[in-house]
Design a protein around this nucleic acid. Sequence first.
DNA 1: TTTTGAGTTGTTCGA
DNA 2: GTCGAACAACTCAAA
Length: 480
Amino acid sequence: MTTILWFRQDLRLTDNSALDAAISRGGPIVPLFIFDHAEEHEWSLGGASRWWLHHSLKRLSDEIKERGNELIIKSGDARSVMGEVLRETGATSIFWNRCYEPRSIIRDTKLKQALVNEGIDVCSFNSSLLREPWEVATQKGDPYKVFTPFWRASRALGEPARPSSAPDSIPASDWAIKKCNLNTLKLLPDDIDWAHGLRERWNPGEKGALIRLNEFREANAHGYADMRNIPSLAGTSRLSPHLHFGELGPRQVWHAITSNAHIETDGIMSKGVETFLSEIGWREFSYHLLYYFPELPSAPLRKEFERFPWADSLSSKAAWECGKTGYPIVDAGMRELWSTGWMHNRVRMIVASFLVKDLLIDWRCGARWFWDTLVDADLASNSASWQWVAGCGADAAPYFRIFNPTTQAKRFDPDGSYVRQWIPEISGLPNKLIHTPWLAKPIELSDAGISMGSSYPNPIVDHSEARNHALDSYKFLKST
DNA sequence: TTTTGAGTTGTTCGA
DNA sequence: GTCGAACAACTCAAA
C-alpha cells in the first residue's frame, strides 16, 4: 500500500491535492523530489531559480521531518529514478500534482504510460491552477485568445474549491533508499556569492509564503489597485516566486483575499481585490495559452512577427542588462532585478517596452535574461507577457503603445525615491531632474557630484527618435 | 451565418 | 493646464 508522492512545483503541505489523496488512501508515503535539471536544455533553471529551489527544498524537507517522514531527494532522469524508488520501497502507486510546461507534459505523459504498463497505479491532480487549462473554453470549444472573456468564463465556473489544511503527520516506513544530499545538487552559486540581495529580500518556503500572503491581505489588498503601480512602495503582493514553486497555491490565495473584511456589500468585492484577482487570472490565462500554444516561449503567436526587423546590437543589449542605458527608471529596474532577483511589475513593463521598442531588440532576448535572473521566472507568465509587450502575443498591446520612460517615471516615481534607491550615483539631483539627468546644467551636475558619461551614462538612444523608428518598423511589418 | 461590441497597463498633438 | 481625438485596423467571442 506504499505510495510515492512526487513533489515538483508544489513544494508545500497545505492544500496539496496529491498529498491529501495519498494520505486518505492509507499506508506509508514516500515523499520524493527528483532533480532532473542536471542535463542542460533550453529552459533549464536559471541561476536565481536554482537559488530559490535550494532553499525551498530545505524548508519542505524540514516540514516533512516534523511530520515524521523524510523528503527523499534524488538526481537524474525521472523515469529511471522512479524505477529505482519503486524497487527500493515496493510502492504500488505514485501520486503527483500536474505541471504544464510543454516539456513536463511530454515527460509525464510518457512516464505515466510506462508506469501504468508495469501495473503501477498513477494518479495526478491539480494543485497549481484555479482551473485546468482545458476546463476554460469558448462555446465552440476553442481556447481563448483574449483575456477578458477568458477570465469571465473562468469565474463563471464558480468559486474555486476551499483549500485543505496541512496534515499533522505523514505516515512513513523503514526503507533503505539511496538519496542525495541537497548540497550535492549544487543549486547555490559556488564562485561569486551574488545571492546576497536575494537572501535579504526573500524568505523561500511554505512558511515564508504564508507569512507574505497574510501581510499582503492585511496591509495592501484593499489599496492594491492604486498602490501596485508605485515601485517605491511594497504595494504588490510579491507572491510570484512562492506561487511559481508551489509554496502556496492559487486556491489559498483566492480564499484568503476574498474572505471577510475585503468583501463589500452583496458580495461585491472592492476594486483592489478585483484587480488583484485579475492578476491571478493573468497567471491562469498564461498557462491556458502555453498549454494550447506550446511554442509560446520561442515563436510569436502572430506569425507576421517572424519577419520583424529586430536590431542585433550587443552593446545596447549589454547596457540594458547591467542597467546603464542612461534612463534612470530603466536602469533602476534592471539593477533591482540583478540585485534582488525580482522587479516591480510596473517597471517590468517599462524596461521591456524599452528593450523591444526603443532598442528594437527581439523580445526573446529579454525573456531569456528575465528567465536567468528572476526568482519568479515562469515559462508561461514570462513568455506570454513578453509577447504581449512586443505586440506579437494573444491580445497584444497595439504597436503604437510605446512607453515613454520619462513620462512613466514622473507619473509612478514622482519623488524619485525608487530611482535614488537603485542609482545612488545620481541621488544628489533635485527631484525635477532625477529622471532626466541629461537635461541638467553643468552646475547642477557638479553640485550633485555627477559627471555625465563617466559616473552615469548619457542616454544610449533618444527616446523620441527611437519611438519614430519603432513606429516605422511596425508599419513596415504591416505593409509586407 | 452574420453581426456586433469589445479589447490590461500609453503617448502625443492640437484645440 | 486640461481634454479629446488620433494612432489602425483586426480579431475574437458571443448573440
